[in-house]
Structures are given as structure tokens and as C-alpha cells.
Amino acid sequence: MSFDSATVQKIARLARIAISDDEAEKLQGELSAILGWVEMLNEVDVEGVAPMTSVTPMTLKKRRDEVTDGGYAEKVTANAPESDEHFFVVPKVVE
């Protein structure tokens, strides 16, 4: 299977990455190669085999319902490009 350039542009748009037509063309080849490589897996017969969800025999770790975290808004917003009174501030996105 190979990607056309419209599909590459769509994937880029969904990932919010701007790419030029030249880049799209290059990526078209790269992505097609990756997909082709992964598609080799289709050669394996997995009929009746349950999907593997973990490489070690373990179950989902669970937590008790207790408040053990939070209370550090200063730290949470420390890396924000812009913040005000502990709010994150971003360009207006209202509908």
C-alpha cells in the first residue's frame, strides 16, 4: 500500500504539522515504506490468538480513591509560554 500526497497532507494536518509540497512528496515515500514494512505482519497467521496486551504477566495496577496530589498550580504553569494568575493563557479559541 502507498500513500497519495492528499493523505500525507491530511495526516500532517491532523497532527498540526505544517509541511510543504516538497516535504509531502518525500514523506509520501517514507510513510509508504514504513507501512509496507509493518504490513509484513499480515503474513503471520493469528487466527484464534488473543491480542497480546503485555509482555509480562501482570494486571492493571489500581489506586485507592484518595487525594494525594495537586495543590501546586505554580509548578504546573511554570513552563507555560504564557500564564496569568495560574491560568494557562492561549490565543483565543472560542467558537
Partner: peptide, 20 residues
Amino acid sequence: KSKLFSGASAEYGGEPNDHV
């Protein structure tokens, strides 16, 4: 009391980004 995947408070309201 706490969130689905973290130990921060799930209480309504609070100071901005305090229950985070």
C-alpha cells in the same frame, strides 16, 4: 474524591489549576 487516573482532587471549583 480523586480523579480517574491521578491523585488530584475531583472536587468542583477550586483555585485555577490547584486540583491538578
